[in-house]
Amino acid sequence: MNNKHRGAWFIVASAAGFATLGILIKSAFAGGANISTVLAGRFLLAGLFLFGILRARGINCSLDRRTALQLILMGAVGYGGMSGLYANAIHYLPASLTGMLLYTYPALVTILALIVGDERFNAPKGIALVVCSVGLVLVLGASFEGAQLAGVLSVLGAAVIYSCYIIIGNRILKNIDPMVTSLWVCTAAGLAFFCYGAAKGELILDVSLRGWLSIVGIAVFPTLFGVMGFFAGLRLIGATNASIISMLEPLITVLLSVILLGERITPLQGFGGAVLLFGGLILQLWGHEARHETVTEV
Rank of each mutant, 00 (worst) to 15 (best):
A19L: 01
R55F: 09
A199L: 13
S27M: 15
G229A: 03
A192D: 04
L255E: 06
P94T: 11
V180T: 13
I25T: 09
F194S: 15
W212N: 04
W9D: 10
L261T: 06
M74F: 10
E293W: 11
G229Q: 07
L45W: 06
I59Q: 12
M100G: 06
I72N: 04
G211W: 02
A19W: 02
I259K: 01
I111N: 11
S182V: 15
T253C: 02
I265K: 00
C61K: 13
S96Q: 08
F231V: 12
G211N: 01
I111V: 15
L183Q: 10
Q284F: 13
G238Y: 03
L256M: 09
I11H: 00
M228I: 15
M82I: 08
A87Y: 03
A15E: 02
V254A: 04
F221R: 05
A16L: 09
S257R: 00
Y165V: 14
K4I: 15
A290K: 13
L260N: 05
L50E: 09
I259T: 05
G157M: 01
I25M: 02
P250D: 08
V130T: 15
I111H: 07
V137L: 14
G233R: 00
A128L: 04
P106Y: 01
L114Q: 13
K174T: 11
V185D: 03
L136P: 12
V258Q: 10
G201S: 07
L156T: 01
I265A: 12
Y103L: 01
R66N: 14
G22L: 00
L183V: 13
W286G: 13
I11P: 03
T187F: 13
A16P: 09
F49M: 15
L112H: 08
L69H: 08
R55G: 07
M1Y: 13
K125W: 05
C132N: 14
E145R: 07
G270I: 01
L285Q: 13
A192M: 09
